[in-house]
């Protein structure tokens, strides 16, 4: 029987600053066997820890099409993640996983894809975005609608520029508060509906962000004709074990860590409203 609770050492190879409180860490498992056997799917997460501090579930933001390393985009929010922000290249993290279900991939081939994200909500989607970009011809139009509080809080600034240049791919950015030479939109992410067509025909939408944003985006998507089953999101919950045991992420009869974190809005509708929190 495998001991699922044992983490494996991974060395930080690079740190990319995303915003004032968010970094992307590229890590490589020290053990070659683990490095080669750690197969994950887009949308899955890992339990990341510093021994002696604690462990937290973090989305794997790298794409499974790019082998040999993992990337985690981490906001310094709690005591573990703030400690991770003090680490340097060459330091180690401990990682176990991958856990959770995944974003659909085969099922959405040939479709138009919308990614609608707020703030730290883009990192969980990045894995799927990049796997699509790596197989771009198999998908229809891709539109990324991304909002943050300020220009500094947008993640993956270079990649956003890069994705924009790919044919049939649009990137729309908005911030609540602009400053400096900000050339894009100002306002909440649903304001971007005025800038570009959001059409439900042969389309599927991935939504990730703070609960209040998700609520308004879903309303807007339904208004635009999207069916509940074509709106796909992740539920975020406090987790400890990641394997459906500790109970913290239990909502209704589901464990977010095992049955999720990816759910369609149709599935979310079956979770009792008081447990949903969106």
């Amino acid at each position: 029987m495998k001991n699922e609770y044992l983490p494996y050492k991974a060395i930080i190879k690079s740190i990319q600053k995303e915003s004032f409180d968010t970094n992307t860490y590229k890590v490589v498992f020290s053990d070659e066997k683990i490095r080669n056997s750690f197969d994950y799917k887009q949308g899955q997460f890992a339990e990341v820890s510093i021994l002696g501090i604690g462990e937290a579930p973090i989305s794997i933001t790298s794409s499974p099409t790019r082998k040999g390393y993992l990337e985690f985009t981490i906001r310094g929010a709690g005591c573990l993640t703030k400690k991770i922000h003090q680490l340097n290249v060459g330091d180690s993290l401990y990682v176990r996983g991958p856990y959770g279900n995944a974003f659909p991939y085969e099922e959405i081939k040939g479709k138009n894809i919308y990614f609608i994200a707020g703030g730290i909500g883009l990192p969980p989607l990045r894995s799927l975005i990049n796997i699509i970009m790596d197989n771009r011809e198999e998908f229809g139009n891709v539109k990324i609608l991304y909002g943050a509080k300020t220009p500094d809080e947008l993640c993956f600034k270079q990649e956003l520029e890069m994705w924009k240049k790919i044919p049939n791919t649009e990137v729309w950015l908005t911030v609540d508060k602009s400053y400096g030479d900000w050339k894009h939109n100002v306002g909440v992410v649903t304001e971007l509906w005025k800038k570009t067509d959001v059409c439900s025909k042969n389309a599927v939408a991935f939504v990730c962000g703070p609960p209040i944003m998700i609520k308004f985006v879903v309303m807007k998507l339904i208004e635009s004709g999207f069916k509940n089953k074509d709106i796909i999101m992740t539920l975020e919950r406090y987790m400890k074990c990641g394997i459906g045991k500790c109970g913290h992420c239990n909502v209704g009869e589901k464990f977010v860590c095992v049955d999720g974190p990816v759910f369609t809005y149709e599935e979310i509708g079956k979770i009792p409203a008081k447990e949903r929190a969106i």
Partner: peptide
């Protein structure tokens, strides 16, 4: 009841 917390002591 089976809920548990996980924590480190150092």
């Amino acid at each position: 009841c089976t809920c548990f917390n996980v924590f480190d002591e150092k």
